[in-house]
Write a protein that binds this DNA or RNA. Structure first.
Length: 328
DNA sequence: AGAGCTTTTGGACCTAGCAT
DNA sequence: ATGCTAGGTCCAAAAGCTCT
């Protein structure tokens, strides 16, 4: 883990954390190469996706992210390769005749060799996914720890692990808070997620527009009760059905979706409690906001409890996994 | 002028097919 | 088993417009 053979042709690469100067020689080893121990033993998972998500949860605690780079059939068993998100080199995907507009593509790729082999020990009908711990050159990174501020995949994993982030953004948006205020509040509660006003706006356009499209086909309105809302997150965290637990379903009242003719619909569409003083109204909204934050806290605590339980389960079968991988 | 909002762009993820 | 390539999809970031 200490000595490293470092990459090869780095001319076409940039060290993503080196800053804009990049005047240093391309063969210079970054000062703080990312090093960490092997992944923790994990329980068996019902799909390679579920295993990937578990390993991703571990990887972000070591400031890198794993992604699937290969999935193939080995004899009768399905296998997959999970590589560091910095693996591979930058390969722009452009249509014929098109050129890259940006002079300096914002690639994060460093041809990092770190990868984990995943495999299904059982059949496709009764899947049982686990992994083989990396060794040799594939067990080391060629880049420093990644900064979530400039690596969207790290932020995305954080948000998957902390659904309270999206809940909070959605609630604050509903309250009509401006993006800057939302960023402040979310950052105070989830400093690791590093959200920006752009994140908030993207969240809004993506989720609200999607909800708006769905609501045109289905008249179902908002999440009616807290039970229903928390049920969504129970599914998100605890469900084995990974087709449905990777994204949170947002159902909003169509009345809350801004229309073309009313781009600031949330403000303009608000009720006007004319008899109340502004101070009363502010206090009421503050109380509501506090109550919602409390609910979000509970959800996050429950999620953490599930995570701890899975880790305990993982430790229990560590020896079994190890024995199997040595026998391969 | 600055903040908010919508739309567009293009980087990154993911998978599959074929080659070695 | 792994490398190479192509292409579809997703979504963060940028660009530009609107509103206060």
């Amino acid at each position: 883990m200490q000595s490293l053979v470092l990459p090869v042709d780095t001319q076409s690469r940039q060290n993503p954390e080196a800053g804009p100067s990049s005047s240093s020689s391309p063969d210079i080893i970054p000062e703080s190469i990312l090093t960490h121990g092997p992944p923790p033993p994990l329980p068996y998972y019902p799909s390679h996706k579920a295993l990937l998500e578990a390993l991703q949860a571990w990887s972000i605690t070591h400031s890198f992210a794993l992604i699937t780079t290969k999935s193939y059939l080995h004899r009768t068993n399905q296998r997959a390769l999970f590589s560091c998100s910095c693996a591979d080199r930058y390969q722009p995907k452009l249509a014929r005749g098109k050129t890259l507009n940006r002079e300096k593509p914002k690639t994060k790729r460093t041809e990092c060799l770190y990868r984990v082999q995943a495999l299904n020990l059982n059949t496709a009908q009764d899947p049982k996914w686990t992994y083989i711990s990396p060794t040799g050159p594939t067990s080391v990174h060629n880049h420093p720890p990644l900064n979530p501020k400039s690596h969207a995949i790290l932020r995305a994993i954080q948000r998957r692990l902390h659904p309270g982030i999206d809940v909070m953004i959605e609630q604050l948006l509903r309250e009509g808070l401006p993006p800057r205020q939302i960023v402040k509040q979310v950052d105070a509660k989830f400093p690791q997620c590093h959200i920006s006003t752009n994140d908030v706006n993207n969240f809004k356009s993506l989720k609200f527009v999607k909800a708006g499209e769905e609501s045109t086909t289905s008249p179902v309105g908002a999440v009616e009760s807290q039970d229903e809302e928390s049920g969504i997150f129970t599914n998100y965290f605890g469900g084995d059905d990974d087709e449905h637990n990777t994204s949170v379903v947002f159902c909003l009242n169509t009345a809350e979706i801004p229309t073309n003719g009313n781009k600031r619909g949330i403000q303009d569409g608000e009720e006007q409690p004319s008899k109340r003083t502004p101070a009363d109204e502010s206090n009421r909204r503050l109380e509501e906001a506090n109550a919602r934050v409390k609910d979000a806290k509970k959800m996050v605590e429950r999620a953490a409890a599930i995570l701890r339980a899975r880790e305990a389960e993982a430790r229990a079968i560590a020896a079994e996994v190890k024995a199997w991988s040595q026998g391969v």
